[in-house]
Design a protein around this nucleic acid. Structure first.
Length: 368
DNA sequence: AAGGTTGCCAACCGCCACAAC
DNA sequence: CGTTGTGGCGGTTGGCAACCT
């Protein structure tokens, strides 16, 4: 050999196109628990029929917890323009100067807004002087122009009203907003001294940390369905009631759930979550074993190895609880997103907040 | 109303740099 | 030092909805 390179994946064997919520959850769950030391083997280990590169891209650009959502501020746009002057199309370098922004996002913003704006400015400056009015982001500082994927339209909401968490919660509850949409709002408000905690702000929480918060969120999401008598749900509901905000809508997304929980409340569930996570992992590996999905014999994290060390697990499986059942369905029927569509866990939707509200989420939303 | 065009962005593709062996 | 594998980067495309004619 020696010539050329092996393709990173067999094209015919991998799924392409928009990511489903189930796939997102698998990827998040896997990366949260195992990291992403090897993107090539990750899809197989995580039970994803995706190219490793595709997984990497999805994680880096959308699922990574510290990805900043929301419109680019005028400051950010100006920064991009300046950096682009200095660096050219070095999007990753530019992105490194803009925390939470991805190179892909910056590249898109440049190509769709800034480039045009600059060329416009050039012609304008010849006659009227410079014009630095932001097209895509100026809304975030005064009003919010928002379109939620065709389901509900927020229109122009004065920031004072929109900053009210009760209002936001109500709005979110009554809509079918997905994670990105909610996150965009949340990040907008958080930058305006809102008391709503965004998911990236959670990263800074001393206790619980983000990983733990994710664990909580996962436990909740893996349960799939909401139950009135579910302990977790009650805890969340109690929390929101204490805060005098509307009851938690079970259809809300993973981040919203995290964002609305008191840190102390989160902490309360961490230990339980850790246990549950362990059981879930064993369940995944058990299924992998039975479905013969894991053929990494030499892999130290091999499911078969894990299982062989835990004889009691088979006993647990005799009476799988609700979460196991839900997860079983997800794993066994990856084409069916068991309730995750309703959860809006991490829609791949873009639904950006451009002034023309032209972009609808459906082009890249989850396929249900 | 219908067909064409435009705007947008998530995802893909191919190449490159670098580390491991 | 050459080969190979992998992650990362930048350019490009696919596909959808809104807009236009």
């Amino acid at each position: 050999m020696g010539t050329g390179r092996k393709p990173c994946c067999v094209q015919s064997e991998v799924k392409r196109g928009a990511w489903s919520p189930g796939e997102d959850l698998r990827l998040i769950a896997y990366v949260q628990r195992n990291g992403h030391s090897n993107w090539r083997t990750l899809p197989k280990n995580a039970g994803l029929q995706r190219c490793g590169k595709s997984c990497r891209l999805r994680w880096i650009n959308y699922l990574r917890p510290d990805v900043k959502r929301g419109n680019f501020t005028k400051e950010e746009e100006d920064k991009i323009i300046k950096l682009h002057e200095a660096l050219g199309n070095k999007w990753s370098k530019i992105a490194s100067h803009l925390p939470g922004r991805t190179d892909n996002e910056i590249k898109n913003v440049w190509n769709t807004h800034l480039k045009k704006r600059l060329s416009k400015d050039d012609t304008n400056s010849a006659t009227n002087g410079p014009n630095l009015t932001s097209s895509a982001s100026s809304s975030s500082t005064t009003t919010i122009e928002y379109s939620s994927g065709g389901n509900i339209e927020m229109g122009n909401i004065e920031i004072q009203e929109a900053q009210n968490p009760q209002f936001l919660n109500q709005f979110v509850s009554s809509s079918n907003m997905g994670m990105r949409e909610i996150s965009k709002l949340s990040s907008t408000f958080s930058s305006n001294n809102s008391n709503i905690l965004t998911h990236h702000e959670l990263l800074d929480l001393p206790n619980p940390g983000f990983d733990e918060a994710m664990d909580i969120a996962f436990d909740f999401n893996f349960l799939g369905d909401y139950h009135e008598d579910d302990e977790m749900s009650n805890a969340i509901t109690t929390t929101t009631k204490q805060d005098n905000v509307p009851s938690l809508d079970p259809n809300r997304d993973i981040w919203k759930i995290i964002e609305e929980m008191e840190p102390s409340e989160l902490q309360h569930h961490i230990d339980e979550a850790a246990e549950e996570n362990e059981r879930e992992m064993k369940w995944i590996t058990y299924l992998e074993n039975h479905l013969d999905l894991d053929d990494d014999v030499g892999d130290e994290t091999s499911t078969k190895n894990l299982l062989s060390n835990d004889a009691s697990f088979d006993d647990q499986l005799l009476q799988p609880d609700q979460s196991f059942h839900q997860y079983e369905q997800l794993v066994l029927n990856p084409q069916v997103d068991q309730g995750f569509g309703r959860l809006h866990a991490c829609p791949s939707s873009s639904t950006t907040t451009n002034n023309n509200n032209k972009k609808n989420s459906s082009s890249s939303n989850y396929i249900f």
